[in-house]
Every structure is written in structure tokens, then in C-alpha cells.
């Protein structure tokens, strides 16, 4: 079934589009709908501002974490050591 193409969207969809925008994964149509929604919805405007701030904060200090495989490697070595300890 085709989705009805409307410019008016619910807050839930606006937040979803806003999240996707932070990762550059929103389509142009999603961005247009979001921009239009933000014109009249104060709560979503606030969420959108906070969301953008969060993205900026995370990018700025270049925070890092272990990749799943790296973590797994450390975990398996540590578990061996734990078993030996027991």
C-alpha cells in the first residue's frame, strides 16, 4: 500500500527524521517534512536543537571506543586469565 504523501507529520515521525538527519541518512523529502514540522512545533524544535548539540559534542572531542572485535579479543584473553586465577 502506498504511503500517503503529506507534508504534515506527527511528532514521532519528525523525531525519527531528525535522528536520521544527524547521521546524514534522511532523504530530501524527509528533511522537507521535518523542516516544515519544526516551523509550528515548539517541542520538536527543542528536541532538534538538543539533538544537533549532542552530535556536535560527540564529534568535537573525537570520542572513541573499542570495536566489537577488539573488545571480544580483550575479553577472551581476560577470561583465560580469570580461569587460571580460579
Amino acid at each position: 500500500m502506498n504511503k500517503k504523501r503529506t507534508l504534515f507529520i506527527a511528532c514521532e515521525e519528525a523525531n525519527h527524521n531528525c535522528d536520521k538527519t544527524q547521521y546524514n541518512e534522511a532523504t530530501i523529502w524527509e528533511k522537507i517534512k521535518l523542516t516544515f514540522h519544526l516551523i509550528y512545533c515548539k517541542a520538536c524544535r527543542e528536541y532538534s536543537n538538543n539533538n544537533a548539540k549532542l552530535t556536535e559534542l560527540i564529534k568535537d572531542p573525537k570520542i572513541d571506543c573499542l570495536k566489537p572485535k577488539e573488545k571480544e579479543k580483550i575479553k577472551s584473553c581476560f577470561e583465560k586469565e580469570l580461569l587460571e586465577q580460579d
Binding site: I63, D64, C65, L66, K71, I74, K75, F78, L82
Partner: peptide, 19 residues
């Protein structure tokens, strides 16, 4: 409780170290 160390602290310690 060392059994939970990797899940709870490895990312924090890694970020602390990499900087």
C-alpha cells in the same frame, strides 16, 4: 567483580587511554 569489567569499563578505559 572482575567478570563484568570488560563490559562495564573497557570502553571508558580505552577512551581514557587513546586520548
Amino acid at each position: 567483580n572482575p567478570n563484568k569489567w570488560i563490559d562495564l569499563y573497557s570502553d571508558y578505559l580505552f577512551n581514557y587511554t587513546i586520548t
